[in-house]
Design a protein around this nucleic acid. Structure first.
Length: 338
DNA sequence: TTAGTATT
DNA sequence: CATAATACTAAA
């Protein structure tokens, strides 16, 4: 029996391989989006396949994807995926999973150096085989080796997610540390933690401040920090507590609402919200809502402002996952103009 | 400045 | 035919 999880894995695998192959980003996105739609289903897909509308009734499933997934459900295999795997070494997906490794680099390592596995990459990186490749300098090789070492230490497993319950105290203590900084005016934990997901891949902290660089320097210097992954003018990423990633974003107080909205996500929610803004002649980013024509800022101080400007009631973070949520909220009478 | 990757 | 928007790093 093919489970929804199997279908999701297949769709994501197809997307990864297409991406390495350099396929049209719209096509790649279609497979990713289809996977995401399946994730949000509350029914087994094989059930839907057998019912009236069939797989085409699943949002994000057009003729091509529905056909391929129908085969997967009926036969337990996808001939399309098998053809892709014959063309593109499927072990490249493991390389793609390394942090800092994207489809362009993976494709180049394969085509130009013949690297197809993590072990081959490890050997090549340490033996100087990557030296002199365009766009891969000494720093890049260092990063690759570090990523390989980290992966090896985990026995090849992907970076583990953590249960929400196991993160509560870490989140609280980081929040307290930042809040104690004299330049920090307000601190919130955002991201999947704020959306109350049961497991989180990282922690996202947002700080309102008039002096972002100083706050970010302080953040990166917190004693529990094991490694600073990046530190810029508005954003810093670190590893804490056994390689767990924590991202910190610092914004001006008048942008706090927009930044909180952005940083809370989900990504799909942000994309839908920003698309909605565009259709209204507005543009939404983490600094506010702006008129497309003259760039005037029309909202940003609070989340409520941001949603209201887009004709929506404030949507609770827990509900910012469901693709239908924005449409549902738009139909709610409360926030529509009085 | 650009390419690539990362972030929600 | 289309595509959310932005930040950071390394390389050129």
């Amino acid at each position: 029996m093919v489970s929804n999880a199997d279908v999701i894995r297949t769709l994501e695998r197809i997307a990864d391989l297409l991406e390495i192959r350099g396929e049209n980003t719209f096509k790649v996105r279609a497979y990713r989006q289809a996977a995401e739609r399946v994730e949000n289903l509350d029914r087994p897909l094989h059930d839907i396949a057998a019912a009236d509308g069939g797989l085409r009734s699943v949002e994000g499933f057009g003729a091509a994807i529905a056909g391929k997934m129908a085969e997967l459900i009926a036969e337990g295999r996808s001939s399309y995926l098998e053809r892709l795997e014959a063309e593109i070494p499927p072990t490249l997906v493991d390389i793609l999973a390394l942090p800092g490794m994207g489809p362009r680099t993976v494709a180049r390592l394969w085509r130009d150096v013949g690297i197809t596995t993590v072990d081959e990459l490890d050997h090549a990186a340490r033996s100087g085989q990557l030296d002199g490749l365009p766009r891969i300098g000494a720093r890049s090789i260092e990063r690759i080796v570090a990523a390989l070492d980290a992966r090896a230490q985990r026995g090849g497993d992907p970076p583990p997610r953590r249960d929400r319950s196991a993160l509560v105290s870490l989140a609280q203590s980081l929040r307290d540390v930042l809040a104690a900084h004299p330049a920090a005016q307000r601190v919130e934990v955002a991201g999947s933690f704020r959306r109350e997901r049961e497991s989180c891949g990282d922690l996202d902290l947002l700080v309102a401040t008039d002096d972002a660089p100083v706050v970010l320097i302080a953040f990166a210097a917190v004693p529990q920090v094991e490694q600073v992954l990046a530190r810029g003018a508005t954003k810093s990423s670190v590893h804490i507590d056994g390689g767990f990633q924590v991202d910190c974003r610092a914004v001006a107080p008048q942008a706090f609402g927009a930044a909180l909205q952005y940083f809370t996500g989900s990504q799909a929610h942000n994309v839908r919200l920003r698309g909605r803004a565009l259709r209204m002649g507005l543009t939404l980013n983490e600094y506010g809502v702006f008129r497309t024509d003259d760039g005037t800022r029309v909202a940003g101080e609070t989340e409520e402002d941001v949603y209201a400007t887009l004709g929506l009631p404030w949507i609770p973070p827990q509900r910012r996952e469901d693709p239908a949520e924005i449409d549902a909220a738009a139909r709610a009478p409360v926030a529509m103009e009085v």
